[in-house]
């Protein structure tokens, strides 16, 4: 099985976000970057598919030189090869999907796995756009995956329940929490990953479809009436919910 997993470099979810000097991006100072948590789930699923079916797992990222750090994590987890499609400019979701599509055409994967969203721009766009560009089916936000021969059965979360979706290889799957618990790379593997080769490609440019004009931190406009835990305080909160905010 030829497995392609796409990953991205994102700020650790515990990071505090500060607007950068250009007013359009965040200040990278003091931010720790990690593999997008949903992409870790995609990586784990790719490795498990290889363990079950044989084949190879390729990890791909679209980004700057620093994104190699996340490819090293993927190598330490056990992927066979790593590829970076290099760009130094800012990019939108279409740009990323288009570059993954270009690379995928060169290796014809049986399955492409990605996280359901990257926790920086939270756009949830790349898997489905990629499906259109490659003419492949996709299933988004998958919590359970079974592959028998060419038949793929995936469970995906919807409001108030689950959909069971049937499709066939080759296809694209976007991973949601619950699909698996990603492994932690072992120290010797982390050391070995440092010297493994990373294939480099130049990004294909596309016209910017979406332009970010600015970024801001939402104002906290909460009244913040903080009371104790006595009966009278509970009475007061119930009164406020009922009379002031009218939610009861």
């Amino acid at each position: 099985m030829n497995i392609l997993v796409c990953i991205s470099r994102v700020p650790d979810t515990a990071s505090r976000v500060i607007v950068g000097s250009d007013g359009k991006t965040i200040d990278p100072q003091g931010i720790k970057y990690i593999v997008n948590p949903y992409d870790e789930i995609a990586l784990e699923e790719g490795l498990r598919l290889r363990e079950k079916n044989g084949g190879t797992v390729t990890a791909l990222t679209v980004g700057g030189e620093s994104s190699k750090e996340q490819l090293r994590t993927a190598l330490a987890m056990g992927v066979d090869s790593a590829v970076i499609v290099k760009t130094d400019s800012s990019f939108d979701s279409f740009f990323v999907a288009n570059n993954i599509s270009e690379y995928a055409k060169s290796i014809n994967p049986d399955i492409i796995l990605l996280g359901k969203q990257s926790v920086d721009f939270d756009s949830l766009q790349v898997p489905s756009i990629l499906g259109e560009l490659l003419g492949l089916p996709s299933v988004s936000v998958v919590t359970k995956l079974a592959i028998e021969g060419n038949t793929v059965t995936a469970e995906r979360e919807i409001e108030g329940g689950k959909e069971v979706v049937e499709t066939s290889l080759p296809c694209i799957i976007s991973a949601q929490k619950g699909l698996n618990d990603p492994r932690y790379p072992k120290l010797p593997d982390i050391m070995k990953a440092k010297s493994k080769p990373i294939e480099e490609k130049d990004a294909v440019n596309s016209d910017e479809r979406v332009t970010v004009m600015g970024i801001e931190i939402p104002l906290k406009k909460r009244a913040g009436i903080i009371l104790g835990g006595e009966d009278k305080d509970i009475d007061e909160v119930v009164r406020l919910l009922h009379e002031e905010s009218k939610v009861i």
């Binding site: 700020p11 979810t13 990071s15 505090r16 976000v17 607007v19 965040i26 926790v119 920086d120 721009f121 939270d122 016209d207 910017e208 479809r209 979406v210 332009t211 970010v212 004009m213 600015g214 970024i215 801001e216 931190i217 939402p218």
Partner: peptide, 20 residues
Amino acid sequence: FIAKKPVYGGKAQIIAKINT
């Protein structure tokens, strides 16, 4: 159209437009 959309898990919002 000018859109506002939460990013970084809602810690920030971007103001963005579509060019197509």
